[in-house]
Nucleic acid binder design. Structure first.
Lengths: 210, 210, 210, 210
DNA sequence: CATGAATGAGCCTTCATTCAT
DNA sequence: TATGAATGAAGGCTCATTCAT
């Protein structure tokens, strides 16, 4: 009995926390982390200022939480996407398709401002760096899996362990993303990414397979 | 008489401006742009707070100025380096050497904190984005020249205009640099960069030429 | 049935109230009244924030209650001590012994931080001033009794009513205690007190009796 | 020329600082340190909130400054008073007169609330404790001098070094002052003090000299 | 009696910028 | 050109208290 009551209250609290969460993310995305105050957030949520601190220890704590959770969603998204691709697709094409998908997600789901924020925060907060690596960890695995399959089928050269190769791919994605942020809106993310990956994958591909 | 005085004053002013400049850069590098106040700067320089505003319209104006000027030095450095390379070196090797050089400059001359700062500022201030592009413009040309030579000699495929190709190379450099910042100090910048460029250049190279 | 439940509930409530009481006192003593929040208290007790307000109207109400109750214990202590002294002891010696006892109690039972707190609170809250006077009222009587006996036996001069004399003694004790707080830990409370009271009692004593 | 300008500005600044000073003291006195905000102070002075921080590092810094400076004035006051007394006055009478003077100063010049504040702050801030001792240091010397003269003239017994005796007198003054704060306004400071010191001085006086 | 989410006034402090000198 | 006192908006955060459950 007591428990049920507790649960309901807890749920209410969680709901508020989530609202803070979502609104903060949105605001951070829209205006940049540094330009969003606690006041902005609580106003958006429609709660009192103090309530923010009931749920988050500080602004930084919120940002940290935001970063790590975001990753899960995005990664799940990528994984789901991979499953929609035909089984017999070449690994290279799978990668190209995935890159396209990632571009879409970044551009449309995450968005320019959020990405900027995430990149900035990663550069700012040393402790969050762990989240930063963690952020893409699932993506690393995803890419590694595809690469592995490609290697197994003789499509890719095994000049490097697939883990390292996947690191390079992620790195290239980061470079592209950073470039996109900088040149926004004068940078066709998808086009540039595909072009870039073609070069990169050409370097990985087994020569004869061209 | 009046003129001379004027001139001397101007010189004096320029000296002050340069001092602000240098100290600000140092402080920004040491502590991060957001953690350096105008007060910190003027204290370091040994001038009054108001004097700062005689020379710079605002803090942002200083940052902008800082970014663009920094580029010039670095780029000159790269150009000088290129001239030290043997004439008959293959374009691919020249690029690899240049990449190594760039890694060195970033690691040792500019340094981890500065790079982080620069990347952050570029993501933060929309107006500075122009400086940001400008920052690397000379590098773009440099790379384009080498690529062009490589294409002319049949070493590289002309599947893309050299300007676009050089964009991709710079972009890859950015990805590597960003990765270095994130994984610092557990990221062997040079090694990873060379590895990455090998893949990338393989993609650009004419197949038969392998 | 209902009654029993009620009773048990009441007992439970009293237990909680006492816990708040004791923990608050400890915390106040350890960190100072102003540095202890309701949150600190309820956390220490292991109850919810709201529960505090079930038992105490406000933080100030708690402090007030704390002060007046503390007095009772201490005063009872003094009274008990007096009874341990031999009947035929001179009033002067009784006073000296009592002063020694009081020093001990303050130093060891109440302690430096608590005394500081109590003195501070007395200076802070005008309404609590009544508790403050009440705090020592029993001590006043105790001293007055000893003095009276001394006067009756010709040991002390009756230049002032014993009530006023006892006021002076308490006042001197306060001065000593305040000094102790200020010079802590470089102030030998007992030694200084005895020295001080010797002077003071010399002033009260009948000259011929020296 | 430059200097003069500088001086004028500096004077202006000092004036503002003094205004903050005086108003803060007044407000602290009227409402108690904890109940006076920076906002209250700057509003009273008629300056902007930031201006406060131009002159004082923090609220605590102001309080500290307030305490130590206050002492100088008060002490000088006492010293001046002593010089107005006739040369041939007995040391005992000098002390009584001084005590009366001190009561006056405390009551009328410093005032109830300020004293409360000072006593409170001394109990609160450990580091300020040094100011606290320093506060009375001149008074200690003053009293010691008078006592010494009394001892030299055979008026006082040399049962304790004059330094220690003066400590006891100051301590008694503190006790009286604390009592006054607590019983305010139902405590005739001067009367009680004189009465108290008569007792105390009687204890110090040489017996035959009565 | 107990809970704990929510409140919101209030606090101290920072800092880029202005302006009279 | 240089100064530095003054500004005041803004920010992050605290905490005693309330109230629906």
């Amino acid at each position: 009995m007591k428990k049920e009551k507790s649960t309901r209250r807890k749920e209410q609290g969680e709901a508020t926390k989530k609202k803070i969460y979502d609104n903060a993310l949105r605001l951070f995305v829209e205006h940049g982390v540094d330009n969003v105050t606690i006041d902005d957030i609580v106003t958006a949520v429609g709660i009192a200022r103090g309530t923010f601190y009931v749920h988050f220890e500080s602004k930084d704590a919120l940002i940290s939480a935001l970063l790590s959770s975001r990753a899960v969603i995005v990664d799940a998204d990528y994984e789901a996407f991979l499953k929609t691709l035909p089984e017999d697709m070449s690994s290279c094409d799978v990668l190209v398709a995935l890159v396209g998908k990632i571009c879409d997600v970044i551009k449309d789901d995450i968005g320019y401002e959020t990405i900027k924020t995430i990149y900035k925060v990663q550069l700012t907060s040393a402790p969050a760096a762990q989240d930063a690596s963690g952020y893409d960890r699932a993506v690393y695995r995803l890419l590694a899996d595809v690469l592995e399959k490609g290697v197994a089928q003789g499509e890719f050269r095994a000049l490097l362990p697939v883990e390292e190769l996947s690191n390079h791919l992620v790195l290239a994605l980061r470079g592209l993303t950073y470039e996109w942020c900088m040149r926004y809106p004068n940078f066709n993310f998808e086009e540039q990414a595909l072009e870039h990956f073609k070069l990169l994958l050409d370097g990985i591909k087994a020569k004869g397979k061209d």
